[in-house]
Amino acid sequence: MITKPIHTRLMYLALFIAALLLPLYVPDDYIFQIVIMSVLYAIATSAMNLIIGFTGQASLAHGAFFGIGAYGVAILTKAGISFWVALPVSALIAALVGVLVGIPALRTRGHYFAIVTLCFGVIMWILAGNWIELTGGHNGIFGIPQPTPVRLPWLGEIEFFSQTAQYYLALGFLLLTLFGLHRLIFSVFGLTFMAIRNNEPLADAVGINTFTTKLIAFVSANFIAALAGGLYASMIGAVSPSAASHMLTFNFLIFVILGGIATLSGAVIGAFAIPIIMEFLQFLGDYRMLFFGALLVVVIIFFPQGLVGGLRRLNQRIAVWRQNKVSE
């Protein structure tokens, strides 16, 4: 069992309380909207971390599955189906597509897998832009209904029309995702993911069914990405092909890498920190992406473990330093 030291647990508790109380101190609606988007991106990024970070398979179709979720919810709710039916149905469709794509794609390894998934991502993006009858073409779909109110036995009706309610809905999904991923990754089954990442032939040799394990990781990641996409569609109220594009995949990749690959907190930190940094760098205009491109290269060369990895290294240095001091 992996246990965290007490100060780390306290920090998580403080973060959790800060997240719960966020609507009380958020300065304005604009920032609030960015925070809500960050929560949704954090869900998708955590899922991407499962396949890239923990299983070591560079799936570059993640944005496409986010898009399947978004378009699925958009099309189904516009057809009059309740959001609460449309969301799981879209996610299941994404999972099914994930199985269909995963079975051929996961036969390939390394760069090949990255290219195949990227090609699939581009095909989905072209489809989203050109299949006008279904997706509305390059204009996308507008006027997607917001999540329908839920009637609970004792609490009465819960509506999701205000930003605050949507924030808690998104936060609920994020916590659920993180809880699920935590249970998965730190289980014996989750360890097989990392075994495949570290040495696939060895994992195969000790009796792990590497193909099925990779497929499960891939499909789970796509399912969660589609959930995030579905929430995104109904909260924004519109989808366009950019919600399914490879640029979105690259954004998720930036979040994962800069936050810290293969750490649960890294994906979340990346998804929150980067959009906020982007807002602060708004004055740079088009130079912003120039900066991020260079930043990505620098981080992968000098801090391949990202922000969380850097903090961990710092933590270890401090621990060593304290130990040396005690022993002197």
């Binding site: 992406m289 120039l290 260079a294 990505l296 992968i300």
Partner: peptide, 22 residues
């Protein structure tokens, strides 16, 4: 690991594309 070079390449392409844009 190979994936690092891949990610660096994506960083480089974002850089070049925004350079042309700017």
């Amino acid at each position: 690991p190979h994936i690092n070079a891949f990610i660096a390449a994506i960083g480089a392409l974002i850089f070049l594309e925004s350079l042309a844009l700017v």
